[in-house]
Amino acid sequence: KYQPEASPVKPAMENSLRILTTVINGMRHWSQFKDKIPYLFEIFATLDSAVTLGRYGAKNFLMRDGKDVLQCVFYENEQVLPRLIRGQVHRCVGNYDRARDVLICVSVRAALPSEQRNALEAVKVSDAEMRGVVKVFSEV
């Protein structure tokens, strides 16, 4: 009886949550695969607006890196938003809403000087990982 050669087994794509360190533009780019694997983003960027109060207790503000500007929102469910200083670099971790182009932040705080100096490598590593992931997607 004819037996077709076994096709090499594709390793199952890691489907657990990831946290990607990235820049604003990178986040917008990688978010297009959000329906395939879950991830949160960590960004380091400069506060470029006042913090304003929105509906349902939302705190809205803009973050900027280079020419890219991003709308952010933080809901004070568990903790109050710390005092943010316009013009300084902050660290935001959150879930990017692609449809509204908003980062829904779950953690916001001032970035440490050493974090600002050293974040670039983590961005490169996240980019490299995502290029690999996307490659696997395109092969499937």
Binding site: R117, N118, A119, E121, K124, V125
Partner: peptide, 14 residues
């Protein structure tokens, strides 16, 4: 984590 150590680890991964 110390951000400097994280950077070293990331550089090795790259």
């Amino acid at each position: 984590a110390d951000p400097g150590e994280v950077k070293q680890h990331m550089a090795q991964l790259l």
